[in-house]
Design a protein around this nucleic acid. Structure first.
Length: 110
DNA sequence: CATCTGACGACCG
DNA sequence: GCGGTCGCCAGAT
């Protein structure tokens, strides 16, 4: 399967934003849904500029196991994402395709 | 070819 | 909030 599409999609996720596996699956119409998205990320090539850490589970939960979970969280926090316990603040960081060119709109600077 | 497993999500009790 | 079940697909053994 050409996870290439998935990687490309993930690559365009702006810094400080995240998407869920389900979202990813829906956006790319992956057969099998979120599961397939997960598979794609599992096979995600490291060191290719693929911000895999910006892909989280439904509700902003990190589903992967250690030690990657800690790494992912660390990377996200490093990008300015705020975590609420074991969850990332989806309301603020969930990225929606098509909004990339959207203006910052509200004084969300920084 | 049969079986198991795995970065999931939604539902139900 | 937590744990169990089901659907669903691809790759590995």
């Amino acid at each position: 399967m050409s996870w290439n599409l998935v990687y490309r999609f993930v690559k365009r996720i702006p810094r400080g934003c995240v998407v869920t596996y389900g979202q990813l699956a829906r956006a790319l119409k992956l057969p099998g849904g979120a599961r397939t998205a997960g598979r794609a990320m599992f096979a995600c090539p490291s060191g290719r500029g693929v911000p895999w850490h910006r892909v989280v589970g439904a509700g902003g939960r990190i589903l992967i196991r250690e030690p990657h979970a800690s790494l992912q969280r660390r990377l996200l926090e490093s990008e300015g994402a705020r975590f609420d316990g074991l969850r990332i603040n989806m309301a603020e960081h969930q990225w929606k395709p098509g909004r990339s060119a959207k203006k910052t709109g509200r004084g969300s600077r920084r």
